[in-house]
Structures are given as structure tokens and as C-alpha cells.
């Protein structure tokens, strides 16, 4: 999950090399594969953490003291829907990614 060099190198010099090589370690934006995204209805959430335990990508964090206690990292969330399926109170809804993105843009 590193999106910049691990540590700043002492002297950085740009030089051309041949062949497949990388020095900036970046992981794939798996969130771009998503067709549906999980959205939490916080008023119904009982803060049990089941969604986080079942997330196969381990990208859900629970903050019990916050109102918006479930934080999903959408950069990596592939939208598999396991969290929505496992939620004991059914407070996670899978919504269409395109319309969700449109809403994001309008709200921004």
C-alpha cells in the first residue's frame, strides 16, 4: 500500500535504464475494478466489526467512538459485497458505483 518511495533517497539522480524495472513501489488501484460500492447506514450500525473481520482485502477500519465508525478504503475496495452480506443488521448497502461517483463529484 506504498504509493511513494519507502524512504527519501540520499542523492536522487534520474537516469535511463533498459528493461522492466521500477523504483517507485505502487500497488494497483484495485478500487477501480468496483462496479458496486458498499455504503454504511450509520444510524443502524451496531459497531460489531463483523464487516471488518470478513473483508478479504482487510481495508475496513472500525472506530467505535466515532459516529461514522466504519471506514472503508475505497482506493482498494473491489466491491465484492462480502461485508454487506455478512452485516448482522443489514446496514451496508451495495450501490451503483457510477451513480455514487456522480454524487461524490456533486458533493465535492
Amino acid at each position: 500500500m506504498q504509493r511513494r518511495p519507502e524512504k527519501p533517497m540520499k542523492t536522487l539522480k534520474s537516469c535511463k535504464v533498459l528493461g522492466p524495472v521500477a523504483t517507485i513501489f505502487d500497488s494497483a488501484n484495485t478500487g477501480s475494478w468496483r462496479i458496486e460500492r458498499p455504503v454504511v447506514k450509520f444510524e443502524d450500525c451496531i459497531k460489531c466489526g463483523t464487516c471488518a473481520r470478513y473483508c478479504p482485502a482487510n481495508i475496513i477500519d472500525i472506530f467505535k467512538d466515532e459516529r461514522e465508525c466504519v471506514v472503508i478504503d475505497y482506493y482498494y475496495c473491489k466491491g465484492c459485497g462480502i461485508c454487506a452480506n455478512e452485516c448482522p443488521v443489514g446496514c451496508i448497502e451495495m450501490v451503483d458505483e457510477r451513480s455514487a461517483r456522480k454524487n461524490d463529484l456533486q458533493n465535492a
Binding site: 519507502e6 533517497m9 535504464v17 533498459l18 528493461g19 522492466p20 524495472v21 521500477a22 523504483t23 513501489f25
Partner: peptide, 21 residues
């Protein structure tokens, strides 16, 4: 003269190369 493996100055050689490159 080209790429090298050195833990002090890491390089990832033979990473996944997309059709773009």
C-alpha cells in the same frame, strides 16, 4: 551498466508490465 539489485537502493526488476509499455 543498467539495473542492479542493492538493498540500500532498491529496484524492482521484472515487474508486471502493462500493454502500454
Amino acid at each position: 551498466k543498467n539495473t542492479y539489485l542493492n538493498t540500500e537502493d532498491p529496484m524492482f526488476i521484472c515487474d508486471l508490465t502493462p500493454p502500454e509499455d
